[in-house]
Every structure is written in C-alpha cells, then in structure tokens.
C-alpha cells in the first residue's frame, strides 16, 4: 500500500501543484486548507510526510509542526514550504535544531528540488 502525504496550504493552486508532484511519485495525497483541519487529519490518519505552509489563516505553521511532533506514534516528517522565510533564516535553523521540522523548502522551488526532498524524507 502506498504512503500518505499531507499537504497543508490555504492556497488551492499551491495544493494542486504539490499534489501533482506527490502523485507523480506514486503517493496518496490528503489536503488541508487550515491549521485546525491539518491537526484533525494528523490525529486521525497516518502520514509519512507533511508539506506545511508557514502562514495559515487560523494558525502558525510552526504550531501545526509542534502538534505533529507531539504525536505518540507514527510521527511524520514535517517539511515547511514557505515564501515567508529564506533558506538560511535563523528561525528555520532553530526549528530544525529543535526537531520541530525536518526540512525547509523556499517558494518558489524547482520540481526537482521538491521531489528530492519528498523522496529523502521517506
């Protein structure tokens, strides 16, 4: 059975792009447009990776990431995908060091970069 990937972004077009990329590698996709919806889906389902936007209408992306890191079992790898931060942003370094996220991808990205991160996080 193929793995499930959770995509969290309030921009439907962004979700569409990421879905295309994830599905092209044979994974299943689940989408959440809000932080609350993402937490609900995280609690119920099992995901190998979460692609998470940093700024959501109801919650901060980092809070969703923290929630994911507190899950008792089947902790997913969280990849923050955002235009709000940059690659060597101290905030990102800190979040990786604290184990809240495992990787960061700045928008815009190349499809190849995305797929590399997707595959390496499995």
């Amino acid at each position: 059975m193929s793995k499930n990937i959770l995509i969290v972004d309030d921009e439907p077009d962004m979700c569409w792009i990421i879905s295309q990329l994830v599905q092209s590698q044979g994974f299943n996709v689940v989408t959440a447009y809000t932080g609350e919806d993402a937490c609900l889906k995280l609690a119920k389902g099992r995901f190998s990776t979460v692609f998470l936007d940093a700024k959501l209408p109801d919650m901060d992306g980092f809070d969703v990431a923290k929630y994911a890191s507190l899950l008792k079992k089947d902790k997913p790898s969280v990849v923050l995908v955002s235009g709000y931060y940059y690659q060597d942003d101290p905030v990102i370094h800190q979040a990786v060091a604290d184990g809240i996220i495992c990787n960061f991808l700045a928008k815009p990205f190349t499809n190849k970069e995305f797929i590399n991160i997707l595959m390496s996080s499995q």
Partner: peptide, 16 residues
C-alpha cells in the same frame, strides 16, 4: 513577500 512568492511558486512549478 509571502504573498508574491506563492503565485511565483505556482507559476514556476506549472512552467516546469
């Protein structure tokens, strides 16, 4: 920055 990089990311990936 956040708001412009979103559409940029969508354009970039679509073009690819």
């Amino acid at each position: 920055a956040h708001e412009i990089r979103n559409p940029m990311a969508i354009c970039s990936s679509s073009a690819q």
